[in-house]
Computed example of a mutant assay.
Amino acid sequence: MAQNSVQSIERAFEIIEALAVEPKGLSISELSQKLSLHKATIHRILQTLLSRGYVQKDPQTLRYKLGVKFVEISSLYLNNIELKTEAHPFLRELVAMLNATVHLAILDGSDVVYIDKIEQVNSIRLYSSIGKRVPAYCTALGKVMLSKFSDEEVEKMLSKISLQPYTQNTITNVEKLLDEIRTVRNRGFAVDNEELQEGVRCIAAPIYDYRGQMIAAISISAPVSVLPPHKDEENAQKVLETAKKISHRLGYVEGKKDYQGKEM
């Protein structure tokens, strides 16, 4: 066993790896013999994995197999790789078109996670990097991805976090945030009006997959002088068009209905 490892976690992975190469599954006795572990230990670990969907039990044979949770996690991982690969050339086009920094991000709980970023040469310094997490409530990316949820779901999500003011423009009132997200649903894009970083404005649009589900978003970020409020509609159309191109690359079919029942 590796130094500093946690024994119960090591054993759980041993069970998972043993089941991974047995399509027909294994019983507790077979796992015990294969891994040289006590049946009680295996049973306890299997019950935890079973409760979380990582293994499933055949009621007829009493054998255990890997569960659908692994399929879900694998799909998310593979989707993110495909998403970044397919989106990258379009992000470069958008950077050149609008002279702004472009981000590609996903939503993880109440946080936005950047998975790609392309900066314009000599652009203003943005406090973002690939892999960094920022609150969804004060970013255009976050607000556009929160718009896929109902008001009740958004309110429940916001109730679990502290709405801290990053700038004087940060919206920290839940009802005002809900109004903002309703606006995002209606117009199809979101704006960050210096809500995360002073002097920086952002516009974001959603990305849909082959199922018509919103899975990510892209945004442009630049100083107020580059993205003034009076040009939001004009700039948003370019961001929306780029998001639509990426969605098509991911299998989105024109005319499919999105989560609101509207055509994208």
Score class of each variant (00 low, 15 high):
S219H: 06
I42S: 03
V102Y: 02
I42Q: 03
A87M: 09
I130V: 15
L104D: 05
Q197C: 02
D258K: 01
I73D: 14
S128R: 01
Y127E: 11
N4L: 10
T48W: 04
E198D: 12
V102T: 07
F70M: 13
N80V: 03
N173R: 04
E153R: 02
L76A: 09
I28L: 09
G261V: 06
H43A: 14
C202K: 01
A2S: 10
A100P: 02
E263W: 01
G261S: 07
G199A: 05
L158T: 04
V184P: 04
L227H: 08
E175C: 00
T41N: 07
L163R: 06
S247F: 10
S247E: 09
H103I: 04
A243E: 02
Q213I: 13
N79R: 15
E82R: 15
S74E: 12
L46I: 15
S36G: 06
S110I: 09
T48E: 14
I220P: 01
L66P: 04
K148R: 14
E82L: 14
E82P: 00
D58L: 11
I130L: 02
S221N: 08
F189L: 07
T172N: 13
K24N: 12
H38N: 11
S51V: 06
E86A: 13
S162G: 00
P223M: 10
Q56I: 12
A2R: 13
H230K: 12
I171P: 04
H103P: 00
V6A: 14
P89Y: 09
I218D: 07
R182T: 08
Q164N: 10
L98F: 03
L141K: 02
Q237E: 15
